[in-house]
Amino acid sequence: MTIDGMYEILFIVTMSLLALITFAYLVRTILGPHFTDRILAANSISTVIILIISVLAVYLKESYIVDVALIYASLGFITVIILCKSRLQIHHRDRDDDFKNLKKGLDKHD
């Protein structure tokens, strides 16, 4: 077996394992009891997909595919930020996201 063939096996096994992990996170996204569970799983999915795209870029030896991964990374980041921000704005307008209010909120439960 040549070295290139071994690399091919390595990359394909890596990609398929990462794809399986993506499905595991997808189930968590559907099950997740809270809102934050779902967002967390979606964020992890984006990380795993970035890894898949990077491995694919190296496997095909095309450097422009890494750009796709970079843009995917920034999209995932912006998704998380905007979803959390809008959630806080819509449902918790009374509790301002201020540090002192956070402390007060924690004290209230005592």
Partner: peptide, 24 residues
């Protein structure tokens, strides 16, 4: 560049998520 981006962006995302959870 990808590693640098992940290391800069991911902490911010998870910080925001944690704040949402604690407020919620």
């Amino acid at each position: 560049m990808m590693i640098v981006f992940l290391w800069v962006a991911n902490p911010v995302a998870s910080h925001f998520l944690a704040k949402t959870e604690i407020i919620e």
